[in-house]
Write a protein that binds this DNA or RNA. Structure first.
Lengths: 215, 215, 215, 215
DNA sequence: TATGAATGAGGCTTCATTCAT
DNA sequence: AATGAATGAAGCCTCATTCAT
């Protein structure tokens, strides 16, 4: 019976984790659809078809759920970035930026939500530890980016300015591109979002390249 | 006696308006420092040194205070943009973008706050009318930008893509530049914010110019 | 100049009293139209075209304004009742009841308002004194009614039951008749209010007469 | 285990409903004792020994609690009325009126409270639906009364006037009778309330009967 | 273990009344 | 004398979190 007991425990764990993911997915969906202010724990539980108390078996607080969404997203972005860095080092100088933009613009609603969550949770003491973890991931990506950018500068591909100028400019443009997708006053005149985002991505790829700036 | 009476009334009005400004300034300061969620009407009143009820003599609701901040900012941005358009039409093609970036990056904390407020008030029915007013201002600016961009395209200065590609890209970059200033994980490594913002502004000025994009 | 000074003072008093009446009339009109809960002192002042502070020069409190309306109404009702008693003693046994009903049903909206005000102010300590005055008027009327009813009983016109049975029954019917005029669920089916009120008034005149009750 | 689980759920439901009733009863008691204006949700909760938030698990708003009291009362009155109509159709012409009066005068304080609540909630949009339900009950009762009254008119028992004259007169007298019980200035002189109410009820039974009115 | 009823701190807003001008 | 800006107590309601079952 040891085997079956082990199996039971595994099954239990599996179901526990599945439930956790269900909570996250439900929360994510609600947060995107209704906006951060309008989502309550009660509603998450209701939509997920579980009890409110159960939510608190998985997460210490509402903030932790949101933090988890951020963390998952940051990890995924970091992974995509890493792949881009790899591609760049394999010869295509624009690959990182492209990968980065595509990663962030693949699901602008999610990206924007995470932007908002970050502001919301910035000062939340209850998730300070996880926020630190998130920042560690970001710092690690940044370190890799930095060294990559420095190589490109040495190879004469990028302008010779501090490395962070380059990747922060990219970050900024991507961040803003996401916002463009949702700004009232813009959305109604954008009939060709794909084209716009391609245009912006191209700018991202080109900007900071040697010979581009006249300032 | 008529004179003194008139003077008294004027003095009263002046003080009333001064108090209104005091409320706005106090609210603004708190919103920037503490974050939208953490600011209450009670706290605004306390910081302004007035009673809670007094706030409601000047504004119908908390949302209206925030809306007012947005509106003031939008108007100021529109004015700066207009001046930039004028300068561009007087011969300097990069003037608009430069003016726009300088306007938005002059007080990034305020710009970022307004970004957040817009998201927060987007669906608030109680300020729908003022939001419409704000969008009208924005639309008017956009119309002027559009015609200006089209001229620059005709003159061969800008890439021949839909006009809104150009100004939305600028908007996006400015938006993102503001965020860069506050993103935890970035701020600590930016020792030379001025340089960075100049770099980004230059990108803004250059991007979309003919011969810049390789896509 | 003594004369002119006296005249001035009189003129002032006259205007002061006129203003007081204006406040009462405005309040009355608002109370009837909007309902007791929805009338504020600010609105009374605004409608009357005077300052809020001025209202408080005439009345100690909002309750006092309402009390004054009640008192005025009670006095008017008492006067009408007295005339009716007189008429009854002059030979028409039904005159009191008729006068009473006509008095109360002449302006049902006002009567109903006063009913509501009485409930509202019943326990209000700030107008306890005036309430006492009102009750004194009522008691005085009751005393006269009592003696009149007793005469009618002796003359064999009314049933020989305690005098207050008679006049309280009348009071009740009048009170209810007023309510009928406003009850949702009734009003829409009353196309002939005059006829209904005449019918009820007739009941009032007849009820308690000898030979009417079978119980 | 299924049984005990089912039992547990039932027990829970029972207690939930019991608490709901507790809230209603507490509210009712406070409303009668202190008057509508002086009852707050906080006080209801305190008196019921529960938290403020709990009240809102059972009712959407304070108005809904009051509406519920009204609805319960209207239903009970309608039931009593129906029984009276039945009795009248079984041969006793005065049975309806008697049943109706007894129903309303059984607990005058409650009846009066409901009168007040109706005025208060008349224009409250948040309970408009329930108010409609209440009026539907009332209309249904009225329809039955109408047809009954018409029969009695045909049988020559009641005066040949529009049917609603009869039942509205009854309603009015009952309404007023309730008010008599509480009117300051009357209550102190009523030592024999039972007798008075019997007297008034008799009037109700007799009034409108053929040969009673002289106009 | 899962549940959801219960909680109460805390937010927004109203309005009678005061008082400096 | 008249004004209306200022006040703050008091009310309603929300919702993250707890805990008994």
């Amino acid at each position: 019976m040891t085997i079956s007991s082990t199996q039971k425990i595994r099954e239990k764990k599996r179901r526990f984790l599945a439930r956790e993911q269900l909570i996250i997915d439900t929360a994510l969906s609600l947060l995107i659809d209704a906006g951060i202010e309008r989502v309550t724990v009660a509603e998450i539980a209701r939509q997920a078809g579980i009890g409110k108390g159960t939510v608190y078996k998985h997460f210490e607080s509402k903030s932790e759920i949101m933090m988890r969404i951020m963390l998952d997203y940051e990890k995924s972005t970091a992974t995509n970035l890493l792949a881009g860095i790899q591609a760049t080092e394999n010869g295509d100088p624009g690959a990182v930026v492209k990968a980065y933009f595509e990663s962030r613009l693949a699901n602008p609603a999610l990206d924007r939500l995470v932007q908002q969550l970050e502001i919301r949770l910035e000062e939340e003491p209850s998730v300070a530890r996880q926020m630190e973890e998130l920042l560690a991931i970001r710092r690690s990506s940044i370190a890799k980016l930095s060294s990559m950018v420095e190589k490109l500068i040495k190879r004469g591909i990028l302008e010779n300015v501090p490395a962070h100028y380059h990747y922060l400019a990219s970050w900024a443009l991507a961040q803003g591109a996401v916002d463009v997708c949702f700004n009232r006053g813009f959305v109604d005149q954008i009939d060709d979002k794909e084209g716009l985002l391609r245009f912006i991505t191209n700018i991202g790829v080109t900007m900071g390249n040697r010979g581009q700036l006249r300032g």
